Amino acid sequence: MTRVLVIEDDPIIGEMLTLYLSEEQFNVQRVDTAKDGMHALDHFDPDIILLDLMLPDSSGSELCDEFRQQTSTPIIVTSMKSAVGDRIKAISAGADDYLCKPFSLQELKARMNAVLRRTSGSAVEQPLSADKRSDGTQASKSGISLDVERRTIVVDDRHIDTTFSEYEIMKLFVQHPARVFSREELINAVRGIDSFINDRAIDVHITNLRRKIEKNPKEPRFIKTVWGVGYKYVN
């Protein structure tokens, strides 16, 4: 049974989510503070996290960033804030999707399932142009590897943690070296056509990836910008 951690301080919304998801055969644990959310991350070990953006002891974006330092578990942020800036801030902090309140519970379930499908399938997908190593990583000619079990990038034998979206983008690059991807193609590959993400969010993910894998992010060797089109990976 899929474990869902709901971090929501509004008792009405929290109870509504708990009841609905339980009826839909999810194993739900709900907490109402960031502190309890961090505790539940270790002890409940969720498969997916629903995170309210406004909590009494921390902002959702700050907590999202803390989660990302410890886990690659998918995070869907829920919030009354609908401004593009708030969405970009949450995604930049590591959120995998953003849903504005009030929202349809059916839509929430659909987005959760979409993220979970990508997560559960990622460990068995084989990068087309990579070689399988004996240690379980997928290596490209550049020496950069993808550890498909831990969902990390390996650079010079160092495991580098990524967000869900960063890993999916890097996996796509390794699968198709030298192919130019438009921002729209990256959006559809990472999110699917039903989830929120835009060109600016893709640029943020690329910037973060360059900081993690490039020796000089300002003069990238591996992830190249193709002006007016998008990005490509050079191995």
Rank of each mutant, 00 (worst) to 15 (best):
D45G: 09
A123D: 11
V84K: 10
N235A: 09
S122F: 03
L209R: 00
L19Q: 12
R68I: 02
N208S: 15
F26S: 02
K212L: 10
L19D: 10
D156G: 12
R87W: 04
I13E: 01
H39D: 13
R179M: 14
I91S: 00
R133S: 07
S104H: 15
R150S: 14
V204A: 05
N216A: 09
A90N: 06
V77P: 05
G37V: 02
L51T: 02
I76M: 05
D9I: 02
A178W: 13
D86K: 01
V226G: 11
L186S: 10
F44D: 04
R158E: 14
T33E: 00
V180Q: 09
V154G: 08
N27Q: 12
R118I: 01
V229M: 10
V28Y: 04
A114N: 13
R30I: 03
F103V: 09
K132C: 02
A123P: 04
F222K: 01
S61K: 14
D9K: 01
D65T: 15
G121W: 07
Q106C: 13
N208V: 08
Q175C: 12
I76N: 01
F44H: 13
F173W: 14
S165R: 01
L186P: 07
I12L: 15
L99N: 00
R221N: 06
D203S: 09
I75Q: 01
P11K: 14
R3E: 05
D156C: 13
L105A: 08
H205S: 03
V31R: 03
D157R: 15
R179S: 14
D135C: 03
N113D: 15
S82C: 10
I7H: 04
H43A: 12
D97I: 08
V4Q: 06
D86N: 11
D45T: 15
L108D: 07
I153W: 00
K232T: 14
D97W: 04
K224A: 08
S165W: 03
V31Y: 05
E125M: 12
S195A: 13
H159Q: 15
D10G: 07
A201L: 01
R191L: 08
A189Y: 10
N188R: 15
S59W: 00
R118L: 06
I202M: 07
V154E: 07
A90C: 07
A189P: 08
M80N: 10
D135Y: 02
A93Q: 02
P217L: 11
T2D: 04
I223C: 12
R68T: 08
G228M: 12
F222T: 06
Q138S: 05
T137A: 00
K35G: 09
D32T: 04
D42G: 10
D42H: 13
P217V: 13
R151H: 12
V226I: 12
Q106A: 15
G228V: 06
M170R: 03
R3C: 04
I88F: 01
T33R: 05
T2W: 03
A178F: 14
S104V: 14
N188L: 15
R3Q: 12
Q70Y: 00
